[in-house]
Computed example of a mutant assay.
Amino acid sequence: MSIAEKNISEAILTVENITLSFGAVRAIRDVSFDIKKSEIRAIIGPNGAGKTSMLNVINGFYHPQEGKISFRGEVRKQMRPHEAAAGGIARTFQNVALFKGMSTLDNIMTGRNLKMNKWNVSLIPSMFYYGPTQKEEIKHRQYVEEIISFLEIEAIRKTPVGRLPYGLQKRVELGRALAAEPDLLLLDEPMAGMNLEEKEDMCRFVLDVNDEFGTTIALIEHDMGVVMDLSDRVVVLDHGEKIADGSPDEVKSDQKVIDAYLGVSN
């Protein structure tokens, strides 16, 4: 589906002149771009280009020395992780970050934490587990069951995630992020380490999340076939600098991108 067909116009997030340094190492240098509501926006580049650092800036894990972030019209010089989560930004990680001893259902349930009534799940009501506390858990479990059905993982809902193959663990992590009902979903290499069948499944789920829920998605991915098939727009980083920004067709034919990342076929 093209940008025109999706009626994409409004920017849900804008990063302006972001510079991030670790001591003498400059990870990001004066980078600006936006992410429009309901689009799938890819961030690509060679290893060490600053892609994950940029996601960490967006959701507040890193605080840039220069620049600012605007999310849903609110300008923040520094985003903080809890503010990002509460405001509607969720993410998955390059390395799976799940509770390995907990079941699939319980892992996804942790994504509902910010949606729960704090009094109903506080210490005293939880000690007795009746009335409002019980109703609160039932309500959120119903939502989690819908996600489990959506991701087609009913068969592993009670399985500890540490026993699952890597591809299914990635799917559970996606489910936990979706449980937060995000407006903006950040995916850090969601297809990394997957075989072809697992990649095809994950691509389908990413598209379905975008189409059915209207969730805006920003993803980092090294598989260029995936990037070109999924993305509405692509921004390219190299050594912490933006070298290209545009549609997949525009980016893949950009000489700077070919030289820095895609390479030249002989």
Rank of each mutant, 00 (worst) to 15 (best):
S2M: 05
I3E: 10
I8M: 00
A11T: 06
I12R: 03
I12N: 02
L20T: 08
L20E: 04
A24V: 13
I28P: 00
R29F: 12
I35H: 11
K36I: 05
E39A: 02
A42I: 12
G45D: 04
M54G: 02
N59D: 12
G87K: 13
G87R: 11
S103D: 11
N107M: 09
T110F: 07
M116I: 12
L123Y: 14
T133L: 04
Q134N: 02
K135S: 09
H140D: 12
I147N: 00
I147R: 02
I147C: 00
E152I: 10
E154K: 10
R157V: 01
K158R: 12
G167N: 09
E173I: 12
L174Q: 06
R176T: 06
A177L: 01
A179Y: 13
A180S: 15
A180V: 03
L185H: 05
E189V: 01
E189C: 10
M191E: 02
M194Q: 09
L196Y: 13
D201W: 14
F205W: 14
V209F: 05
L219P: 03
L219D: 07
G225T: 00
M228I: 09
V236M: 05
H239M: 10
H239C: 06
K242G: 06
D254Y: 00
D254H: 00
Q255R: 15
A260D: 10
